[in-house]
């Protein structure tokens, strides 16, 4: 069953708040990352925490090296009296998906979603090695940048992109002259530093509302479709130059049927991945991609995906966009992908 075929309850993103991501935030613990964004998102939605029907968060223990970090983070929403709540050990975009599913049930009308991540505390490339198959991959010690570089090489070899194309993406997101970027040395060839994401700490929060609860807002960003898919883990079993899971999710989310798309927020931590994703989503040159700068500008782990959904919704909230596509990714070389289609128009 796909999200696009069956009749769904109309659900919208009605507010989005984020901390400006920074390279290293030593002053805030996880509670202090969560509290301000939750407070801001609720205020923006005109709700109190007692109004919220369901709360769900995304975070990952390994980023800070401590089990159960989400337990203290929960204090940031002050769950008293007790609340209906859940947590995914994933990017917050999947927490939003869980909330969207929950709202389909019809008995609650609002959901609060938050995500936080402090990537700066650990050695992030080594931490991400822990995501790999523990028998054949993790013991080799291959890091996240090297994995992405294997994918980038495959894309270059396919003839569908050049190193210059990668630099054009990087220049568009983070500035700089293409020729100068290309003159810099490789980090892990064929990737240069500008092709790779920064390490960032951050947090964000989103409020979802359904039906009339959403219609109270001036310009809700209606979720017209949302879907996520995963691919096999072993890189040697995948075509690294295509994001088949993104394509499937896009089909189920209705990317092709929404009409003209004004903006796309793609969670592409590496420059070549933006090209692969544009291709998988069928986005034409007319679509403004990552006006926020995307993950090449700030990449707080577990937050950056939900941020894409929030940034895309914010463009609808302020009237700059009518239809938007948002995307989140997880795992090595775009292994898992979520696609969300947002519109200022509720489904007819």
């Amino acid at each position: 069953m796909s999200a696009s075929r069956a009749r769904r309850r109309d659900v919208a993103i009605v507010s989005f708040a984020q901390l400006p991501p920074v390279r290293r935030d030593t002053a805030r613990d996880e509670t202090e990352l969560v509290q301000p964004v939750v407070t801001a998102a609720l205020r923006q939605a005109g709700l109190t925490r007692q109004d919220i029907g369901f709360t769900v968060s995304g975070s990952c223990d390994y980023l800070i090296g401590r089990p159960f970090s989400f337990v203290t983070a929960l204090d940031g929403v002050a769950p008293w009296p007790p609340i209906a709540e859940s947590h995914v050990e994933m990017d917050g975009a999947w927490a939003l998906y869980e909330a969207w599913v929950r709202l389909q049930q019809g008995d609650v009308d609002t959901a609060l979603i938050y995500a936080y991540g402090k990537s700066s505390l650990g050695d992030l490339p080594a931490v991400l090695t822990m995501q790999l198959d523990p028998y054949y991959l993790a013991p080799l010690g291959i890091d996240a940048v090297s994995l992405a570089a294997l994918q980038a090489r495959a894309l270059l070899d396919s003839g569908r992109a050049t190193e210059r194309d990668l630099a054009v993406v990087a220049a568009a997101r983070r500035g700089g002259a293409v020729a100068e970027l290309l003159a810099t040395p490789y980090l892990v060839a064929p990737l240069r530093r500008h092709d790779c994401p920064p390490i960032s700490d951050g947090a964000c929060a989103v409020v979802l509302a359904a039906g009339d609860a959403a219609r109270r807002h001036a310009r809700p960003a209606w979720i017209r479709g949302i879907d996520h898919r995963v691919e096999p883990h072993q890189l040697g079993s995948r075509d690294l130059t295509r994001s088949t899971s993104t394509a499937i999710a896009a089909e189920h989310a209705g990317v092709a049927t929404i009409g003209p798309i004004d903006v796309a927020e793609l969670h592409a931590p590496f420059s070549h991945q933006e090209l692969i994703l544009r291709d998988a989503l069928g986005l034409g040159a007319e679509v403004a991609v990552n006006p926020s700068g995307g993950a090449l500008v700030a990449n707080p782990m577990m937050v950056a995906g939900l941020t894409r959904l929030g940034e895309a919704a914010a463009r609808i909230h302020d009237g700059r966009a009518r239809n938007a596509v948002a995307h989140a990714t997880s795992g090595p070389c775009l292994q898992q992908n979520l696609v969300c289609v947002l519109s200022s128009e509720v489904a007819s």
Binding site: P134, Q234, G331, P332, Q335, Q336
Partner: peptide, 15 residues
């Protein structure tokens, strides 16, 4: 995840 030392094991276990 520290029990098995596999971060976000839904990725490794997907297939």
């Amino acid at each position: 995840d520290m029990f098995e030392g596999v971060m976000m094991p839904e990725l490794y276990l997907a297939d």
